[in-house]
Amino acid sequence: MGTGTNIGRVRGLGSAHHGAMHWWRQRLTAGGNIVTMVWFVVSLFRLPSLDHASVVTWLQSPFNAVMMLLLVGSVFYHFRLGLQTVIEDYQHEGSRFVAIVLLNFYTIALAAIAVFSILKIAFGAA
């Protein structure tokens, strides 16, 4: 491996074998999003009221809590991949690196808060 041009440094190495992974996971989570988000929007609009007692009762059902966890997993992974594509299209070099790091922090922090909240409600502590 030389230290010359970019093409010179990768020539002869062959495939990295994960070129299609980002693309495929974007599609896989898209399917997950359709199922979980349609369920979520319909359930939310079918709730008798959006007061604390109603939403807590709704989220304490094991089925609803598990669906919410699956929703967070699928939707958050999907938007992380999507925003990564947007960043890679418009940002280059150093600012791209910083933006990707911030994107990872943003997604993982938000997911941690969401998952912790769902579990706290589901286990009856809200």
């Binding site: 939403v55 938007f79 938000l110 969401a114 909240s117 769902i118 409600i121």
Partner: peptide, 18 residues
């Protein structure tokens, strides 16, 4: 995503926060 997470954490924080 932020509105969704804010809503979830408000529910989890109890009736007053919600």
């Amino acid at each position: 995503a932020m509105l969704f997470t804010w809503w979830l954490s408000a529910i989890a924080s109890g009736p007053d926060a919600y």
